[in-house]
Amino acid sequence: MTEEITDIWVYLATSPLLWLTMTLAVFVFSTWLNRRLGGSPALHPVLLSMGLLIVILLVTGTDYDTYFEGAQFVHFMLGPATVALAIPLYDHRHQIRAWLGPLLVAGVVGATVAALSAITVGALLGGGHVSLMSLAPKSVTTPIAMGVAEQLGGLPSLTAALVLLTGSLGCLMAPGLIRLLRIRDDAVKGFAMGLTAHGLGTAQAFSISATAGAFAGLGLSLAGLITAFLLPLLIAWIPLG
């Protein structure tokens, strides 16, 4: 009997089905747990899911590549979801056209501050070159950030993790900062959340309102475009030891 269970486990542990199902199950559980605990952003369902899945993988001795064979089906949908952001953008086309100048200026300010503050603080605390270059694109959505990090001499896979942490931190800090600065306009809230905390910020902005979500999608795309074009030029200008 024990032997049969072991055999079944050996088969399942390497099949994509198990880790795909596990990813969905853990996320459903994390969302439920987050709601039970009062919906605190410190226990964001994504962070909870990451933690739980890492523990499960470590306990069962499964490596990340095996896990990703199953989880890649979820990961793949990031591309289509990015394309889908065109619809909320289209819904808010009039407001975007009216605000084009202010949005572009705020986008350049935000994207520059995001990269320079991360590099400066990291360098002051003795971070290595690879870490700094992996940190620089941390506010940008994962696929853009990984490409930019590679171009700058960082580690794309480390960047992917830092991007996720930035996203969770953004969701955690945004409500407090919005209250502190007395921001009332949902468009301003959403734009800053999408620019700073990319997809995670955008997901949270949609829970404020559809307007916040649409402007978060705009902030996310602007941050990506500006960073992809400007950051490599900016890095060439600043002297880094």
Partner: peptide, 30 residues
């Protein structure tokens, strides 16, 4: 959208060593 970030996020487990070396600079900077 939030669910779609989980697989990439779990990838942080591959970088525990590098993060351990520069953890202060990385976490304060973030």
């Amino acid at each position: 959208l939030a669910l779609l970030f989980v697989p990439a996020g779990v990838g942080i487990m591959v970088h525990f060593q590098l993060i351990a070396r520069d953890w202060l600079a990385i976490s304060v900077a973030l």
